[in-house]
Structures are given as structure tokens and as C-alpha cells.
Write a protein that binds this DNA or RNA. Sequence first.
RNA 1: GGUCUAGUAGCUCAGUUGGAUUAGAGCAACGGCCUUCUAAGCCGUAGGUCCCAGGUUCGAGCCCUGGCUAGAUCACCA
Length: 596
Amino acid sequence: MNIESIVKTKLIDAIKSNYAQDVELKQIQLQKTRREIEGDITVVVFPFLRLSRKSPEQTANDLGEYLQENIEEIESFNVIKGFLNLVIAKSYWISLLNNILKDSSYGYNSNNPDAKTIMVEYSSPNTNKPLHLGHIRNNLLGYSVSRLLEANGHKVLKVNLVNDRGIHICKSMIAWERFGEGKTPESTNTKGDHFVGDYYVRFDKEYKKEVAELIKGGLSEEEAKKESPLLKAAQEMLRKWEAGDEAVVALWKKMNSWVLAGFDVTYKQMGVSFDKIYFESETYKKGKKIVLKGLEDGVLYQKETGSVWADLEGDGLDHKLLLRDDGTSVYMTQDIGTAYERFEEFKLDKQIYVVGNEQNYHFQVLSLVCKKLGFDWAEKINHLSYGMVELPNGKMKSREGTVVDADDLMSEMINTARETSKELGKLDGYSTEEAEKVFETVALGALKYFILKVDPKKNMMFNPQESIDFNGNTGPFIQYTYARIQSILRKAKDNGVDIKDVNTEVSLDEKESYLLKMLSEFPQVVSQAGKEYSPAMVANYIYDLAKEFNGFYHDFPILIEKNEEILNFRIQISKLVGTVIKNGMAIMGISVPERM
RNA sequence: GGUCUAGUAGCUCAGUUGGAUUAGAGCAACGGCCUUCUAAGCCGUAGGUCCCAGGUUCGAGCCCUGGCUAGAUCACCA
């Protein structure tokens, strides 16, 4: 039992003993004592005044005396403005340190009694163009939340639902057929997703030309957009694809394989992965049976023209189409079908969709319709809704050329990291290969941290003009702190320092015990972040820890310390900071270098 | 128009289920610190009507109501 729980239970006793009143565990508020005040844990006594019928000061004193008498670890207490500050014995913190030092996966809850099986769907790209910054946020979040849930002891299935069918890919196909001259990614030495994306852009260009011509010929803009022969060709191609036309399917397979090969490279660079990949071409018809069953059961209704709908007015929403007049499925129908299959196949306790907040409505409806259809898993569907990445001049628009390409961004970051590192010249002695590995680690650390430190729910701003920082509240700052620590540990080893358990009587400076307290909070941070699906909480904690460590590092000699007990303590606490940084960064999918 | 989300320093962001009349970081600006363990670091100065107005209570950046501003969404598209 940790010290907070002990204080809470004893506090209940204290109130009973002093005032003959009962309080529930939930009513007790503990908080960290503010740094400039002596103490470790603070009890907020205001809620108890009704029970004590005494002044805040008197109440705090009563409770403080009881707690000090009944809890061994409490050394003393003080009362300021009605806040009861408890001072925990240093030896408590040090033995805590000794315990967690033995645990290399400190912070991770490996035997969670509430472990669940959770599927996280993320990435879900369209196969007509390369990934951009918006996808980066999605991928990093999805991967990181998966790691976070694993850190909380859950079994996680990471899946990707690739949208490989539809009018968009047909547009690229038509453009390639017409203007491609038989070129391939190999023949042009282009990454497959970029190659296909170029034809998607080409389609749009030619399409606009056609529309302009048609308008000149006397059509309205609206008519022209519908009458464009190129668009009609794409629509015809989609029909052929759905009919299984061999030539079309072959072309479709070829172009998709180019794109997917390109995505694999990007995913690998980003460091994300999946346990299973679904393709919409295989799932897009799913859900129809379920919907028809729902119609039979009377929870859905059919219009005269044949289409099937869900009436959600009772939930304050509109009517939602589930099957078209011709009986084909829509997006929603497919999602119902795949969700059903996933819950059946994997016995999921939870399904999380990492999808932008522009689809909030969709997921609200999905959950409601599933509930209407009588599925008990309807409420196990979670939409991890994240905000848009905005540029200074607004949203990214691929047609206006304002997208920040994922591959470009990553390679630019690596270049910057390389330049910076060479300027600082700290990798002397590393082979080119080793050094390149570090540049990549740092570059991706900067990018990932930049994205993940922001609360997922919020929109975030990215300014391509000001490249992502490597100083201050950044990934490299944290990585640097880690590298410093590793340097100390290497030297300690070289010096033959004998590292052992810390003597519980060793005297600590304020900064040292503050660091210790911070370290003890790590598991709670991971747990809280897991509940809220927020890697940002981990990011902010790790940053604060690194910042605090750097202050300590600056003020206190470690290896030069003469007193062996203190030397030992400082090495040990440094080591633990390193472990926590490493474990915390791993949750964000960020690796840490031994040197930088 | 309906629904949802956000608004904290010049800029980018923190601020755990309401808690200490000193609301925090980083960047940018200015000033210090490398003959001592990695200066991608540390310390300091300056910078705020927490969008506005009410309300709830011992106590509000956080909760409620109304307004302002910005964004998203409301297809037989995906």
C-alpha cells in the first residue's frame, strides 16, 4: 500500500475518533504539497469543517496529531491557512527508490487485474496519395495510445483499415492510363505513393481544364462539374471495378501495390506498426445483413424507394441512411459490419477508433445505431477524436498544394538534426552509420514529441516556416538529458564505482528529495494518461522530470562527490531518472540515444 | 439555422476529479554562467483583465447560464 492510501484510510479513522463522524474515501482530497512549503502530502481540511464544527486551523491540527501518532512514516506536520501539510520521513522515499530501482519496467502495470482486450484502429489512409502531416498526428497518436494501454497492462490489437477502393483511386487510375505513358515507380525512381499521388493531382488538373472548357461552351459550373468526360470515365471505372472487370481490377491491384509499398516505407520511418491490416475492398459490403435484420425487427425503416434508414430523432439527431435504394452499403453500414465481426472474432472489451474530430458525428451515430440494433458492445466503441493540424494560413488542402508531406517533413528533420549535431560535434568516435542512427533518433524524437505533447483533443498549429525546435520543451531536450545520464553511468562504471542500495539515512537536499517524489509519481501518471488516452500527459510529466534533473545536474556534483553514500545515491537517482525517461518516451514511440 | 469543440504571455502550449491572492513552461527579446560529470544545458529580467457578463460556494482558469470569436459537422461522398 502506498503512502497516499495509508493517509486516506487513517484520515477516516482520525475523523471518527475526533468527531465521531463518518466520511467516505472519495471525499478525501490529498494533493502534493506546494514546493515552497515544508511537507510532502497536503490534506485539504475544508470539506471536513462541517463535521468538526471547528476552525480550519483547529481541525487541521486535530487531524495532524492523529495521523502523526498513527502513521509511522509521518515525521511531522504543519498547518498553513487551513491546509494540513504532512512531512514524510526521508527514509520512506529512499526505500521506495531502492525498490523501484530493481524494476526495469518501472511505471508499467504488467499485472493489471482489470486488463482488457482493446483494439485500436488508426492510420486508415486512402490509397490515392501520400501521407501528410495530418496522418502523422493520427499515426503517432494511434501508436502511442496503443503503447500507453499496453503500459497499463491491457492487451492491444493495432489495426489499420486501408481505404483502397472508391472514386478517388479510380481518378488516379484514369490519369495514369491516359497520361502515364507506361511509367512506373521503378522507371521514374519515385516512391510508389508519391507516384500515384502525382496522377491524382494530374487528374484534378485535367478535370479542371475540362470543366473550364465546358463552362465556356455554355454550361453552368454545376453542370460542367458533372459532365466532365474525365469524371465520367472515373465513375465508369468504379462501376467496372465493382463488376469485377478483369483489366480494371488488374490495374487497380498494380497501383495499390505501389502505394502500399510506399506507405510501408513511411510507416517504418515513423516507427509505427500494425497487428492486422483490413482493406475496404474486402469489407465495404459488410453490414448489410445486420441492417436487413434490423429492418425485419422493426428498429429500422424502409422508404418507398427502397433505401433503409435509422431514425435517431429520439436521440436528438437526424435520420441516417444505411442502405441505398439499390441496396448497396454506405460507410456507416460497413463500420457496423466490421465492428460486429471484430467483437465476435477477438472478444474485444473495447474498440478505439483514432479518427479526426471532423467525424465526431459519424461515430456518435455509429454507436447509437449499434445500440438500436441491440448490440451490447455498442457502448464499448470509443472514438478517440483528435484535433486538426492547422497551418498559419488555415487547413491543409492537397489541391492547393498546402500539404506538409510526411516523408519530406521527416527527411528535413533528419537533415536539421544532422547539421545541428555536426556543429556541436559530440559524436566523435561514432561511425557514420552509428551517427546517422542518432540523427534519425533525434529528428523523429523532435517530431513525435512536438505532436504528442499537445492534448489530442485540441487543434494544433504547425508553422512550416519555423522548423520544429530542438531546444526547450522538446524531444531532443529530453533525449539529451537521457544521454547525459548514460554518460555519467558509463563513467561511474569506468571508475569502478560500486553501486549498491541507497542507505536510508543518507541526507538529502531539497532538490534531491523533490526529484525522488517526482519519480514516485510516474506510475500514477501512466495510469491517468491511460484512462484519458492522452500521451500528452506522459510527455508533460517527462519534460518536467528532465527539467528538474537538469537543475539537479547543474547544481550538484555527482561523480566528483567524495562522500560514498551520497555518491551512490546520486548515481542511483540519475539512473532511475534515465529509466523513467526511457520508459516514458517509449510510450510515445520515441527512442533515446546513449550519446548525442 | 441545429449540434459539438475550443478561446490562458507577442507566438506555441501546460494547468489532474474546483483548492494556498506569487496562473506555469518553451520559443522570440534582454542580461549572466563552459580550466569541474555532455552549454541540444543552467540561472536571471521583462511579458497576463485566464474572450466578456452574470451565477453556484468557504474557494472558480476549471462547474452552470447567456453572449462574442474561431473551427468542425449536419449527403443515396468516403
